[in-house]
């Protein structure tokens, strides 16, 4: 668990997540749900976005936990 928390607040994880995020919300990945049209693109965007927000909550909390225990980045 401690290893995960440490990894979540590293710069490497942030850069990795950013690239994944950019890929998930752009062509060509975005073209897959777009084919279905209607509710599928709506569902895809909301679900992916929610997952990203959950990960950001974990990252933010890991950083704050690290700051409190004096580890820093």
């Amino acid at each position: 668990m401690y290893q995960i928390v440490r990894f979540l607040k590293t710069r490497s994880f942030a850069v990795l997540l950013f690239h994944f995020g950019v890929l998930l919300f752009n062509w060509p990945l975005l073209s897959l749900p777009s084919k279905g049209g209607g509710t599928s693109i709506f569902t895809y965007l909301i679900v992916t976005w929610t997952v990203l927000v959950v990960l950001l909550i974990l990252v933010g909390q890991s950083i704050r936990h690290g700051e409190r225990s004096g580890e820093g980045d």
């Binding site: 919300f25 965007l45 990252v59």
Partner: peptide
């Protein structure tokens, strides 16, 4: 324009990933 409105909010969400850096 359908879901285009969401970019205005998804864009900042992506930036927030690098916010700490």
């Amino acid at each position: 324009s359908g879901m285009l409105f969401a970019t205005v909010y998804i864009g900042p969400t992506l930036t927030m990933i690098l916010w700490w850096q």
